[in-house]
Design a protein around this nucleic acid. Structure first.
Lengths: 202, 202
DNA sequence: AATAAATATGAATAATTGTTCATATTTGAT
DNA sequence: ATCAAATATGAACAATTATTCATATTTATT
């Protein structure tokens, strides 16, 4: 897997510096945001000199893009892992939703990283979600064909709705500092009720 | 209605400058984002001197908070207006969703304003959505009591889900430069199908 | 017409920004 | 042990930042 946006280190000493920068950048970009975080902040936290930063990254933006890319891979790997033994689409949605919320609960900084792309470069944000929606839609099609999902509903819209649910129910959990896995299971169950039967009485 | 975060003008000349600043700020904060927009950018676009800006606003942040407040009022007023003749909860959700998406299509800049608060000050963001969710939940309760909404589903989670749907289906429309009111009606209808019956076959 | 309040101006300020570069040190292969 | 490549350093740079303030003009009231 080739990683763009970075010059990877070639010695163990370099790797240590590289990792320190990554860690500091992830923390600060996630916490204070991209624009509010200065290179000075990053190198101070990473405890490296200014020049060291530029050995591995061309710019402040390059580090952000590197981290965003890393997050994208994490999320995809996690989703694949969490749903690999599921035997129907209902279970896939349930497991995927839970895995996502568990992840954002554990690492809310990475969560903010994606949203912030809207302000770093709107095109990054747009691409991120459009690609995600396109991929989601494709994965849903077979389940319409085997009859698990209704055939009278637009799958692109469904994809955006499912992303919206994940993200905002994720917020609900992140907002509550004391939320536990039990709370996550609860909101996932409630969400699945809606996906199963809607919210209205017939 | 008392407006904080600003010293309102007292003459017609002052009002003109004030409005120019508001307009420029709305455009630039929405387009480039809060952190990427400088006071220089704002006063250049508004065609006022630097000092003039500080006659009406204490700081760059004060202008942002003023605009955020204005957006909040707009959204609430719009939602009340759009749903005032609805005769059941289903119609309220439909009309509210459509009004929201119409608004973000017309004024995507205001849309970004709220999301950016997460990076201007996370507490603002948190308050915005927690208040919104709380208010949403309260409005749903009577409809459970009269039997329009299921009584076996958690209303707080439903509120976050409905916010998620609005925001992400809104994105779907905003992403497509060519989307029309017809497209908005379409995605609203699809969303309502989901709220009515879920996405799975029984 | 007189006058106080409101408004406008823009040069100046001090702080911070991302980035560069000449120099020094360390690493790993020979 | 040698030496080129890799890595580390931090002072220096030019650009940009948000904000202030002394001065000037305009407005509304008397």
């Amino acid at each position: 897997m080739t990683r763009i946006n970075a010059r990877l280190p070639k010695t163990k000493v370099g790797e240590k510096s590289f990792k320190k920068i990554i860690k500091a950048g992830k923390y600060l970009y996630g916490k204070a945001g991209y624009n509010s975080t200065s290179i000075n902040d990053i190198i101070a936290r990473a405890k490296v000199a200014a020049g060291t930063f530029y050995i591995y990254f061309d710019s402040k933006l390059a580090l952000y893009l590197y981290l965003l890319d890393e997050y994208g891979h994490n999320i995809r790997r996690l989703a694949a892992e969490a749903t690999k033994d599921c035997k129907n689409r209902y279970e896939i949605e349930r497991a995927g939703l839970k895995a996502f919320i568990m992840y954002v609960k554990k690492d809310p900084l990475a969560y903010k990283l994606v949203w912030e792309s809207l302000f770093v470069d709107p095109e990054i944000f747009r691409n991120y979600y459009m690609n995600f929606a396109e991929s989601y839609t494709k994965h849903l099609i077979p389940y319409v064909e085997i009859g698990e999902i209704r055939d009278d509903i637009d799958l692109e819209t469904v994809s955006y709705i499912l992303m919206g649910i994940s993200n905002f129910v994720g917020l609900q959990i992140v907002f509550n500092d004391k939320s536990t896995e039990k709370d996550i299971d609860f909101v996932v169950d409630e969400s699945m009720k809606l996906l199963k039967n809607g919210i209205f009485n017939q």
